[in-house]
Nucleic acid binder design. Sequence first.
DNA 1: ACTTCTTCCTAAGACCTTTAGGCAAGTGGC
DNA 2: GCCACTTGCCTAAAGGTCTTAGGAAGAAGT
Lengths: 189, 189
Amino acid sequence: MARAGLTTERLTRAGADLADEVGFEQVTVSALARGFDVKVASLYSHVRNSHDLRTRIALLALEELADRAADALAGRAGKDALTALANVYRDYAREHPGRYAATQLRLDPETAAASAGVRHAQMTRAILRGYDLTEPDQTHAVRLLGSVFHGYVTLELGGGFSHSAPDTQETWSRTLDALDALLRNWPAP
Amino acid sequence: MARAGLTTERLTRAGADLADEVGFEQVTVSALARGFDVKVASLYSHVRNSHDLRTRIALLALEELADRAADALAGRAGKDALTALANVYRDYAREHPGRYAATQLRLDPETAAASAGVRHAQMTRAILRGYDLTEPDQTHAVRLLGSVFHGYVTLELGGGFSHSAPDTQETWSRTLDALDALLRNWPAP
DNA sequence: ACTTCTTCCTAAGACCTTTAGGCAAGTGGC
DNA sequence: GCCACTTGCCTAAAGGTCTTAGGAAGAAGT
C-alpha cells in the first residue's frame, strides 16, 4: 500500500488550513485523516492526541503572525509602526480566521513561554519606544494595546459590529488615531 | 420511577453552573444529564440539541450581565459610570468564567438582535453621554470601549497577563484612567 | 376510574478519540 | 541482492458524545 507521507509538520499545516475553512473548533483528527485519505489511527504516530494537534496549530499561527509583524515593523516607528502592527493582526484574522482563533487557545505556561507569544509582547513594547512612556506605564500600555487589538479583531470577526453604520474600516482607523493620541498624551496617575 | 423535574430553565441554569465549573467548551448534554441523574435522551424533550443548549446559556449570561450593568450604572455618569460598567464586565468574568465565555458564542443575527446584547450596546452608548462626542465618533467610541473591555477581560482570564509585574489590578485602573482621558480629548479626524 | 398528556426511558445509529497489535514498505549492513 | 530492522499505515476494539424513534409509567383533567 502506497504511503501518504504523513508528518507532524504536514498534519499541522493541513490542520491550520482546515481550521481556516471550517473553523478551529471543527478541526478534528478524523477530518484531518479524511483529508489525507488515511485511517484515523495513522495520525496518532505523528500527533500525540487531539489536544496536541490543536496546540501545534496554535503555535504555528503564533509564529506566522509574529513573522508578519516583524516584517511589517521593520523600518517603522511611532504611529506608522502602531498602524502597521495593528493591521497585521486584523488582516491575519480576516485572511485566516481559523488560525487566528487558534492563537487564542490557552497554552500551559511552559508552552506559552517557549512560543512566539513572547515575540508579540516584545514587538508591542518596541512600538512604545516611539512614545514617551516609562515603566510601569509602558507595561500598562502594552496590555492596553493587546486588549484593543485582540478585542477589536475578535468582535469584528464574530460579527459584533455588523449590521450597523458606520462601517468597520472607518472605526478601525479612528481607533488607531485615538490610540496614537492616547499614547502621546498618556495621563499621569 | 420518580421524576427529576427537568425544565428548559433548570437545564440552562445548571448548564451555566457547569460551564463555570469545567469551562463552557466542556458543557455537554451528557454531563448535564449525569448532573440530574437522568438518561441523556431525556434532555432532548427540553432542549433541541447541543447547540440550542449552548445558545440558551449564552443568552442567560448576556441577560445576567446586562442586569448587573444596568444596576451598576444607575445614578452614575462620566468616569464614575465608565469605571462601574467596566468593573461589572471584569468582575462577572472572574466570578463566572464559563458564563462569560458563553457570552462570546457567535449567535445568528436574529437571535443576537433579540438578545440582551443590544442592551449592552445601549448602556455603553449611555456612558458616552457624559462625554462630548457626536456621531459618528460616538459609534467609534462604543466599539473601542467594547473592544477594550472584551479584550482585556479575555486576555486576563486566559492568563495572558500573568507572570509579569506590575499586577493586573494596577493596569486595569490605569487603563480606565487612560480611556477616560481619551474620551475627554477625542482626536479630530 | 378512564383518558390524555407529559416525562423519562430503552434501543439504536452515527461520529470522534484513543490504544493495542499486525503487516508491509522503505533503509542500512553485508 | 538479501537480510534484519525500523517506520508508516492498517485493522480491531472499546469508550464517549449526539441525536432520533418509539415505549411505559407518572400526573392531571373529566
